[in-house]
């Protein structure tokens, strides 16, 4: 880890590496801007575009989830094995969403 740093500062009589936080703040701004965009979409698109709205919300939520897991939880820096061990089971959630939301629609009609 220490080899990544080439600038050091003195703190309480000890030498510590200079923080490298540029990427973290960049991710923060991306998350914030997406959340603000969600608000803009929620109150500017007319309500009869409901399905389009939901699609935009789902897409933006997945982008936010990707940034949180990839950058904040460092999943993108883990080995390919760990990366897919975590992501592959999510397929079951996608299936459950499809199955139960369709089922809910049928309960409403009958």
């Amino acid at each position: 880890m220490a080899s990544e740093y080439n600038e050091f500062i003195e703190k309480d009589g000890k030498m510590v590496a200079k923080p490298q936080t540029k990427a973290i703040w960049k991710t923060f701004w991306i998350l914030l801007i997406i959340t603000v965009l969600e608000f803009v979409v929620a109150f500017s698109l007319p309500h009869h575009y409901h399905i389009l709205k939901v699609a935009i919300f789902v897409g933006m939520t997945l982008i936010k989830a990707a940034y949180i897991m990839g950058d904040f939880m460092h999943l993108s820096q883990e080995t390919k094995g760990l990366f897919w061990t975590i992501l592959v089971p999510i397929v079951f959630i996608a299936w459950l969403v499809l199955a139960l939301l369709l089922e809910g629609g049928f309960i409403a009609t009958y």
Binding site: T85, I86, I93, L101
Partner: peptide, 24 residues
Amino acid sequence: WIFLVSDAFTFSGLLIAYGLVRYS
């Protein structure tokens, strides 16, 4: 990480059940 995957399933269960009841 493995625990978080299992916890993600619990939350998905709750949120998807919400979706089912909402659409019904």
